[in-house]
Nucleic acid binder design. Structure first.
Lengths: 159, 159
DNA sequence: GTAGATATACTCGGATAAGACGTGTCCGAGTATCCCTGG
DNA sequence: CCAGGGATACTCGGACACGTCTTATCCGAGTATATCTAC
């Protein structure tokens, strides 16, 4: 089980967009340059963020990406789901129905208990991610490195 | 993010081994036949379970697999880790160190906050899985379908 | 009848291919800006 | 001086290859059993 590397990029990029603020749009190429990432590929991730209505895009000169909502109402779960898709990590294929006894015991009438246990664990994970907003992360960063917001904002203003 | 299908197979197979009990060894081919799975591939998953000391194997006639420990002290986390490996789903590549400002703000002295949030969520998931033992699942199954244990045991005794 | 050696058949285990998904790249469509021209 | 039209340059967005991991398979090494033979 491996999460796409794009998730890390998306999270940090959303954070950068949050520092810049919604007034100014930032092109994908510039967002990529900040971390020295492949611009075309980051662009793909940004598309996903737009589709999920986390970011909004505008074309042409002075165009680019900006956050579509306030950081306070963007959760880490939103971002992860946007990149990874809404599918669960564990996918129950109802394997038990192929068991020779499944007809005799009518096991398929009840929900799959293995699936249920896995679902519950994954829900705990989702709950935890949904409880943390982008603004929460901003506050944590601000506490440990107060200079970062201004530095970042300034870097994206240059050029 | 997608969990290997082998995890589902391993979970159900461990459950079957639990019903059969540790007295009798069951060959991989027979375990595969129960759900009509590719025998050679399930064999590979079983190898992983042996390496994780969840199951034990024996060669030759009357050989096969059996649980190495009591179901009470085998957690779902153990099984998932055995198949998927110990690696985390989200892997922080310390992307922030490539930021142009990282030297100025000495951001790399503090832990990565994005990573920390993701780690915490994944820990919640692991905790949940570690809290559920194979015996717990057995009890749930027993409650809803009391016939299954005996049916399963009998099927593996035939032939 | 019993014990030992041997042949046998069955098991696992690691080395070896095929397919799916994530990764990475490119170029075309669209748009806001800027400039130029005419009034 | 001002307004409108057009050219321009910059942006995103979807279509197109590459690499890596999961999936799937096979065959050889090893072992407990059962048989056969000799005592």
């Amino acid at each position: 089980m491996r999460m796409s590397e794009g998730v890390e990029w998306a999270l940090h990029t959303c954070l950068n967009l949050a520092w810049v603020g919604p007034e100014k749009a930032v092109p994908a190429a510039r967002l990529a340059a900040f971390y020295d990432l492949p611009p075309a590929y980051l662009s793909k991730q940004l598309q996903a963020l737009v589709q999920a209505e986390i970011a909004s895009s505008s074309s042409g000169p002075k165009g680019g990406f900006r956050l579509a909502r306030e950081p306070e109402i963007i959760t880490l779960m939103d971002i992860v789901t946007a990149i990874e898709g809404p599918e669960r990590a564990f996918r129950c294929s109802e394997i038990r129905r192929r068991a020779p006894q499944s007809l005799a015991t009518q096991g398929f009438l009840h929900p799959c208990h293995v699936d249920w246990a896995m679902r519950e664990a994954e829900l705990a994970w989702r709950r935890e991610l949904a409880a943390k907003s982008l603004a929460d992360v901003q506050r944590t960063v601000l506490r440990s490195s107060p200079g970062i917001p201004e530095h970042t904002r300034r870097w994206f203003s240059e050029h």
